[in-house]
């Protein structure tokens, strides 16, 4: 028996929007820790890892570990039927092949339930060890989204370089080149507007902009984004989900031949 009640139902809609461009089908894993997911895109270049901790739910009952295979577009179709202020409850019984999403309006005058068929998905979990990163950049998520969008109109790949001067995003294409440098800036009115660079040593890596643009679909989930870089490791782009957990994206770098 599984029953997860999330007062801030719109958060689940945002989480789905943040993943479904990258991944079609995924197994949601439910345990005492929380509601989580790890899935790769079809080309195994990018990976998304989601954790919504059990403490973040108003009610969280998960009698035994359960893995539920869902088509994210179908799930999104159902969640779009929930109002933005609705409370969403996810329910599943042991041994059934469906999941129920229950939507309650804030004043309880409308209650809807949508039952979705589950699917069997062969998921390949990768072990992601904790690593020391050479550079960690924290910046406003809207700024990162703007940079990725702007650069993708010029080129297909971005070189992200961190030095003590700041973080530089560079691209090149048929029509020309572009460089955007963001310097560390802690003197802002609000902490979420700061750009903070923690650098152990300079690092420079190349990534496909198409994937980074997909990651920025998580922008509505968090005011800030953290980009962790190390040579010869996938970049980690993390959006913290307040009170709940995180959505992290891993992207393998382009390798020089």
């Amino acid at each position: 028996m599984l029953e997860l009640r999330l007062v801030q139902g719109s958060l689940l809609k945002k989480v789905l929007d943040a993943m479904r461009e990258l991944v079609n089908d995924a197994n949601f894993d439910c345990s005492a820790t929380g509601f989580s997911l790890q899935a790769m895109d079809s080309s195994h270049v990018a990976l998304v890892a989601l954790l919504l901790r059990s403490e973040g739910f108003e009610h969280y009952r998960c009698d035994r570990n359960l893995s539920m295979g869902m088509n994210l577009n179908n799930m999104s179709k159902m969640l779009r039927c929930a109002g933005n202020d609705d409370i969403i409850t996810i329910k599943a019984d042991d041994g059934t092949d469906s999941v129920t999403f229950m939507f309650e309006s804030p004043n309880q005058d409308k209650i809807a339930d949508f039952e979705m068929k589950l699917m069997d998905i062969d998921s390949e979990h990768l072990g992601i060890p904790d690593a020391e990163y050479q550079a960690i950049v924290r910046m406003p998520s809207s700024e990162f989204a703007r940079i990725c969008k702007d650069l993708s109109s010029i080129g297909d790949t971005v070189v992200i370089s961190v030095t003590k001067e700041g973080v530089k995003f560079s691209t090149a294409g048929d029509i020309g080149t572009a460089n955007i440098v963001c310097r560390q800036n802690k003197t802002v009115d609000k902490p979420e507007e700061a750009t903070i660079i923690e650098m152990q040593e300079p690092v420079s890596l190349t990534f496909a902009l198409r994937y980074l643009n997909s990651f920025t679909k998580a922008t509505p989930l968090s005011d800030t984004v953290t980009i962790s870089l190390s040579s010869e490791l996938p970049v980690v782009v993390e959006y913290k989900i307040a009170e709940m957990g995180y959505i992290r994206y891993y992207l393998a770098p382009k390798i020089e031949e």
Partner: peptide
């Protein structure tokens, strides 16, 4: 010239 790396080159399957 550069080629796109894959995640399995960095992380092992569990």
């Amino acid at each position: 010239k550069s080629s796109q790396g894959r995640l399995e080159s960095f992380f092992k399957p569990m």
